[in-house]
Design a binder for these strands. Structure first.
Lengths: 173, 173
DNA sequence: CTGAAATTCTAGCACTGCTAGACAGGCGGT
DNA sequence: ACCGCCTGTCTAGCAGTGCTAGAATTTCAG
């Protein structure tokens, strides 16, 4: 998808239908025969992002299979944060731009479920409230990602925050 | 500020310079003699939002002064989440729209510092890594707010997530 | 070779943020 | 009273946006 490259290179605000059309060497209206509108284009990019993120999280988890819970959780969290930092445009399309993606409904894309499941599987199987914990973990990582991407939280201290998050999200004991 | 009312009533995408000019019964260019551009307008609204949020957090804290740490923390968190839900446009201006607000620099507005301090004061004074904890708490609440505002996380289960967050963010013991 | 179907294009609409230059009004100084 | 000036406001317009109608072109079956 050319839209993704363009957005990753210059940001979403630089992705206009005209520039994208020029990039793919067609004229503007052909975009609208393939996609319903600009929203559909970013939604398609977001979808790609979810499969990619799901894959990253999954490998982070399987690579630490059998290790102690702290390490496994840390590996998954770091994979998530790295993804957000290295592919900011993709991340935005997935999580901050207004799109109509069913997140918790019937039509939730499988890639999306897979990504969430990877989160849950990073938590000990016996953890109480495992699903809610995974949601909270996701929310915290998302908050860290967006706030630091916009310099609303100091970059310095990221390691400490991650430590605290891992300690806090694991069931006590 | 009329911009705020308009945005709160119809969302930021409905706030155009023309509509705003019509609202204040002036013509478009006078906006540009008061503000440098549209960004400056949303920044001004965001600034208002920070003083309001700081006030809310502060009263939530003082209202629970002397109570047990869990209750104090919960009161502040709930105040934050309520603010995000009840004033979504204001919240967006403060935290998701791209603005040039110094967050952790010299020119950080006092309202902003006040809001953050309110967070920190909601944590026990003796808590280790108090500042990092406050940052993490903020990030988690922000993640919860944005993800549930865009239906990316189920509204159901919010109470459970808040419980887990409070348990997790307080130092163990 | 012809007519229809599909595909791509040109041209344009209504809108956006923003700005240049014209126009008015009130000010003090002569 | 008159002049020049400054301040504030306006009209008109620019370049750009997402999106679409209808013309033009190509493709291909009969």
């Amino acid at each position: 998808m050319a839209a993704r490259e363009l957005a990753e290179a210059e940001g979403w605000e630089a992705l206009t239908t005209r520039r994208l059309a020029e990039r793919v060497e067609y004229s503007q209206p052909v975009l609208y025969s393939h996609f319903k509108g600009k929203d559909a284009i970013v939604a398609a990019v977001a979808q790609e992002g979810f499969t990619e993120l799901a894959k990253l999280l999954r490998t982070a988890r399987t690579a630490t299979d059998g290790q102690e819970p702290r390490r496994r959780l840390r590996a998954v969290c770091q994979a998530y944060l790295r993804f957000a930092v290295e592919r900011p445009a993709l991340y935005q399309a997935m999580f901050v731009l207004p799109t109509r993606l069913e997140f918790a409904g019937e039509e939730t894309p499988t890639a999306l479920r897979a990504a969430f499941d990877a989160f849950m599987e990073a938590l000990p199987e016996a953890a109480p409230e495992r699903e809610a914990r995974a949601e909270l973990l996701w929310a915290a990582l998302h908050g860290i990602s967006t706030l630091s991407a916009t310099d609303r939280i100091p970059a310095q201290g990221g390691a400490t925050r991650l430590d605290l998050l891992i300690e806090g999200i694991l069931p006590r004991g």
